[in-house]
């Protein structure tokens, strides 16, 4: 479904990504892990079009999306969340979702100006749909509150729902469990599994190994801008390079 071919990225003289290649197949929950600074978020930024790769290609559903601007990537069916939460704080939860759904609105500016039935009907229908999306992350009761007033974990969930509202085929989720307590994390894992079951392919950056081991079907490990290992969670757990990357090398064996 999504294929990265030899992606490299330089910031000035600093090479932050070097020959990154991996493939996500449809229906997967794909985990991207690695120590801080390994380049995981940079990979997301490049896929979503916020950064341009220095070299390499990105193929999504057989079309080349390398160097496409973010809104085109989203139209193609890739949506994402952010590591540092970025909800529209001054808007209500419902409005946040409606912004994500903006492409589904078809009424004209004339309908808007005269408040014609077409506009009213469409707004009503899509508001109901937005409520359905909010219900996936269990936030319907707070629909009319300002997003800025939510707790950390709730904002992350709202961001997830907002990304879903763009009707993606592939969902990139950047550290969803960061700042969540164990109970919230548990609920989040179930929600992600449910989203996946509903037909969304998911690519997940996460530090919480419990989440990765619990829900990912396939994992790629990054360190210093390169993919150092990939495979099923069980295989990865045993991989020597991965253990080294996370825990450091054993002095005797080094």
């Amino acid at each position: 479904m999504l294929k990265l071919e030899n992606i490299a990225k330089d910031f000035g003289g600093l090479r932050v990504l070097n020959g990154v290649s991996f493939e996500i197949s449809e229906g997967q929950i794909f985990g991207l892990i690695g120590p801080n600074g390994a380049g995981k978020t940079t990979v997301f930024n490049i896929i979503s079009g916020l950064l341009k790769p220095s070299s390499g290609r990105i193929i999504f559903n057989k079309s080349d999306i390398t160097n496409q601007p973010p809104h085109v990537v989203t139209e193609q069916g890739i949506s994402r969340t952010f590591q540092n939460i970025r909800v529209f704080e001054d808007m209500s939860l419902l409005e946040n979702i409606l912004v994500g759904m903006h492409r589904l609105f078809s009424y004209s500016s004339v309908s808007m100006f005269f408040d014609l039935p077409k506009k009213k009907k469409e707004e009503k229908q899509l508001r109901e749909k937005a409520m359905d999306i909010l219900s996936i992350v269990h936030l319907t009761e707070k629909a009319d509150l300002k997003a800025g007033g939510l707790s950390y974990g709730e904002q992350r969930k709202l961001e997830l729902a907002r990304a879903l509202a763009t009707e993606p085929k592939l969902l990139l989720i950047d550290e969803p469990a960061a700042g969540m307590n164990p109970a919230e994390t548990e609920e989040l894992m179930n929600e992600i599994k449910l989203i996946n079951k509903n037909g969304y392919t998911i690519c997940l950056i996460e530090h919480d190994m419990k989440v990765i081991m619990g829900i990912c079907g396939y994992v790629a490990v990054m360190n210093f801008g390169e993919i150092i290992a990939e495979g099923s969670p069980e295989e990865i757990r045993k991989e020597k390079l991965v253990i080294e990357a996370y825990l450091g090398k054993d002095e005797k064996s080094a």
Binding site: P70, H71, T74, S79, R86, E89, V99, H102, T166
Partner: peptide, 12 residues
């Protein structure tokens, strides 16, 4: 509120 996020929502 956030132009980058708006663009990621598919907004031109």
């Amino acid at each position: 509120e956030d132009e980058v996020v708006a663009s990621v929502m598919g907004i031109k």
